[in-house]
Nucleic acid binder design. Structure first.
Lengths: 341, 341
DNA sequence: CTGAAAGCGCTAACAT
DNA sequence: ATGTTAGCGCTTTCAG
């Protein structure tokens, strides 16, 4: 009963036109006579015709698909970005193929290989730090790509992002202005992740500028999750005779974990300990106390990256770099430094 | 310099075998002589050959892609599910094409049409309530699909989900057992969303069973977001002379919004007002107080739905329905009913 | 086990 | 503006 899926030539025959005209009626309707267009449309409707994407892709060498590889899909800051990336791509006639690499370097190139094999017209990646094999592959197959979340110092690539270094620097200045000198850092795996590195460097730069010494043991590397944040607090607070006055976290997820751990062990934030994050996920407004953080324009990155990659695919001129704002958002989790101990 | 992308016949020529053998060496290696296999592999490597997915799809009529349409991609409970759906599909050799409909009925069929056009081997949808055009299209094109999050009473379709009705009923019983009789409902748009309907019905059934009257004005319909929850509290609390003793929310996002609004206006939870959610997003454990909710097995749904749709695609036998558990998780946001007023 | 050859359904010259 | 036709790169009979 599932009669063979109708093809374009079925449509052409029914409409009484040639295959070529039928094809044109669907893809460049302004190039056919209204009468032709109409009869084709009628035939399409009558047959319930749906284009065969594989055939179209094979013949035209364009798949109308864009792939995006994110570290994870369920970090809220990425989820927001993906949501808008997808919508914007769709509005431009592109579908989104999505994948994640779980912060694993090798996984990213495997995943990319699978994607290239399937065929995509463009690619969106998070960050600028990728394996050589990643860049080799996209260059070999000449796939337009845009890097997001960071700006690329080398200016080789198209980027839609912001300066993580600068944002972290500005945040640290605000922290220091509150009198803090006992500053701890909660970061994550830095390998293959220039955002982590840039944020830490920006923080350290502000400290150095203020003449504040940094003790390496006041830097912990934990997963980018609530649990990671809890672990960070355990390691930074419990095991020290001089506790830090503030913990600067690389991501909001970690910062919220730190806040949660503070609550469960009765540490008063910000009186005993200040906490800052980075990302500005919505949840950071709902914690007790609300979280001081850096606003990462995740939604904007999604929208702009989509437009940018589409422009590249369609050969439109675009600047190589789109630098967005990432303002510091000061809320109650950052307070004045506890009195000198 | 970007020399033409190598094709299979380039590989075959270099390996000194026929096109057919080269193809077989890649897709059914056990059907070729080891020597043949090896020389093909060498040629592949030497040329940096990558399969052309469009050609493969056209010839084999399989795209090795699965599409999923979710209401939104950034609700944490969906984001978790997507993350695991994607990973599991990938492990089975399928890519994920993702889209969202923003709870808009018509959008879902548009989106599906675009997906079918691009070609996918299988489909994952959230919920059982979809437009006729949705079902028509997947049946016409004979695309295996699995419905998630709910169980389908009609048993027509393949489902991976749980009984929303039953879970809501069990939760409501727990609420009632705490002495609550002034019960308000915070729901969302029910059109095209059987989850919302089932949850509300399950709640009302428990109330009715306990002989508790329900006042229609104690049911508000707000967006599935923090802000929706805040709005619900405004409408249910401020405008009433007899405030409710508990607000049962259809989703955790709303419940967290309610909690936030309670905090900002000094309503003590659970002493003055109890609040419950539904989803068990991780953040529900971090609120003050932690949220009573229903655990929705989002991750499991992702994994199982992926396996299920792959099984359907590959013609393996599978039961039509996979019913998962959705236990009530009682935390401090649910307390005893305030003393009779 | 391998080679030859016929498409898969569409696009994009090219010619009219 | 429309018809004709040659592929796009691969899979899959079918012989051998």
């Amino acid at each position: 009963m599932t009669s063979r899926r109708a093809t374009l030539s079925d449509v052409a025959r029914l409409a009484g036109v040639s295959l070529g005209s039928a094809s044109r009626a669907l893809s460049v309707p302004e190039q056919v006579k209204p009468a032709t267009l109409e009869s084709v449309q009628r035939a399409v409707e009558q047959l319930g015709y749906v284009r065969n994407g594989a055939a179209q892709a094979l013949a035209s060498r364009r798949t109308r698909m864009v792939a995006a590889i994110y570290p994870t899909l369920n970090n809220p800051v990425y989820a927001d970005s993906i949501q808008y990336l997808q919508q914007t791509l769709w509005d431009h006639g592109y579908r989104l193929m999505i994948a994640s690499h779980e912060y694993k370097h090798v996984r990213e190139s495997e995943v990319l290989r699978g994607i290239v094999e399937r065929g995509v017209d463009g690619l969106v990646l998070v960050g600028t730090d990728h394996g050589d094999d990643v860049f080799d592959l996209v260059r070999q197959y000449d796939i337009p790509y845009v890097l997001t979340w960071s700006l690329d110092e080398t200016r080789y690539a198209h980027c839609v992002g912001f300066s993580n270094y600068d944002a972290a620097y500005r945040l640290a200045r605000r922290v220091i202005a509150r009198g803090h000198r006992h500053i701890a850092l909660c970061t994550g795996v830095a390998d293959g992740n220039e955002r982590v590195r840039a944020r830490a460097e920006g923080t350290l730069a502000a400290m150095q500028e203020a003449g504040i010494a940094f003790h390496p043991e006041w830097r912990v590397e934990v997963p980018f999750s609530f649990e990671g944040g809890r672990e960070a607090l355990r390691r930074l607070w419990d095991a020290r005779e001089t506790p830090p006055g503030v913990i600067i976290c690389g991501t909001d997820l970690q910062a919220v974990g730190v806040l949660d751990a503070c609550r469960s062990r009765g540490i008063a934030v910000p009186h005993q300990l200040s906490v800052t994050g980075f990302d500005d996920i919505e949840l950071g407004q709902l914690t007790t106390p609300p979280l001081t953080t850096v606003h990462v324009p995740a939604i904007d990155i999604g929208v702009r990256a989509a437009r940018h990659v589409v422009a590249l695919i369609e050969g439109k001129a675009v600047g190589a770099e789109l630098a967005l704002e990432a303002p510091v958002i000061e809320r109650e989790s950052l307070g004045n430094a506890p009195q000198a101990r």
